[in-house]
């Protein structure tokens, strides 16, 4: 076990997969010589060679279409989109091509591309370095969607994503690269000493589709993913309510059994994400929870989300769900 931050554990996962499988090839904007603007691929080109880890033209559509073709012809590309906000020039390639190739070819072709992309707010990134566009991909049949939250699950999930023969959109909460985020911008802890930052050096994987029980309690089920998991942890502590905290880890396919089991116990549910509310993945969960747990629910399901507005720059802390909004929702769930 080594203490790693999320950059290091992701780098370690890529390193292992490059080592284990000749077909793994890592590329994207600034990922080669420089090692990525967030340093996630640092040292990998020097270690594995220029033909394995390299820079691409500044062209997300180009990156995704090339990756699609490589995947079709026996490689296992892992590409980086520098910010999730910049995935949209590649949206057609992902939604209409990558997601559908297996089905449209009657299973004759597939392309096992992994798209890594830093997402989410909290770094004063304004409109275009802060968005969390997961639901724009969960709404696309044929894609798996993962969203890590800690150094430990980042590595295990990324290895599963790369090994998966289906395309995976892999979101990384950039605010948590170097430390957990508890919702207070002035509190900037590192991953040092955090139990979820104890990472085995060897290969391990976390199956796509399995949630993680981050906290255990009796009176409310709080569900989240990405950076918000840590903000929820803070909110639960602040609220004084005994809660299960479910870190979904994978959004498609999501771990419905874990959610149902918890709500059958607690009877109450709060769903938290930083993406806007309308058509956010929380909406899908609310619908499924009421289908499955209607007779167990003691109070209305609460959603705490980003507002239905563009992500602001100066006022980002009024936008992102913070511990007090979440704690208030937990308290509301306890009434009745």
């Amino acid at each position: 076990m080594t203490n790693m931050n999320m950059i290091q554990s992701l780098n370690n996962a890529l390193d292992i997969m490059l080592e284990n499988d000749d077909g793994v090839i890592v590329f994207g904007e600034d990922v080669g010589y420089f090692g990525g603007v967030f340093r996630t691929t640092d040292g990998l080109q020097a270690k594995h060679g220029e033909h394995r880890v390299f820079d691409s033209p500044l062209s997300e559509g180009g990156i995704l279409s090339a990756a699609f073709g490589m995947g079709l012809n026996g490689l296992r590309p892992v590409v980086e989109i520098q910010f999730a906000d910049y995935i949209f020039p590649a949206y057609d390639q992902i939604v209409n091509e990558l997601a559908k190739i297996r089905h449209r070819s009657g299973g004759e072709y597939w392309s096992p591309v992994t798209v890594r992309t830093p997402a989410g707010g909290g770094i004063r990134g304004g409109h275009h370095h802060s968005q969390s566009p997961e639901s724009q991909f969960t709404h696309t049949p044929g894609l798996k969607v993962a969203y890590c939250s800690t150094p430990f699950n980042a590595k295990g999930l990324l290895i599963s994503a790369i090994e998966s023969n289906d395309p995976v959109i892999f979101f990384e909460p950039k605010r948590c690269y170097r430390g957990p985020f508890y919702g207070d911008p002035h509190n900037v802890p590192t991953w040092e000493g955090h139990p979820e930052a104890e990472v085995p050096e060897a290969h391990y994987s976390i199956p796509l589709g399995e949630a993680r029980l981050a906290m255990e309690g009796d009176d409310c089920t709080v569900i989240s993913w990405g950076a918000m998991v840590h903000v929820c942890e803070q909110a639960i502590k602040d609220s004084g309510v005994s809660c299960d905290l479910i870190d979904l880890q994978t959004l498609v396919p999501w771990d419905r059994d874990a959610v149902v089991k918890s709500i059958e116990k607690t009877g109450r549910c709060v769903i938290v994400h930083e993406a806007p509310k309308t058509s956010g993945f929380g909406a899908e969960m609310v619908a499924s929870v009421q289908e499955r747990c209607f007779y167990h629910l003691e109070s209305p399901i609460e959603r705490v989300t980003g507002w239905d507005t563009p992500f602001p720059h100066t006022t980002e802390w009024d936008y992102m769900p913070g511990p007090s909004r979440i704690a208030a929702a937990i308290h509301r769930s306890q009434v009745n």
Binding site: R124, G126, H127, H128, H129, P312, H313, T314, T315
Partner: peptide
């Protein structure tokens, strides 16, 4: 700020 703190 004429664009109201919205962008970087």
């Amino acid at each position: 700020d004429n664009i109201k703190g919205r962008q970087m």
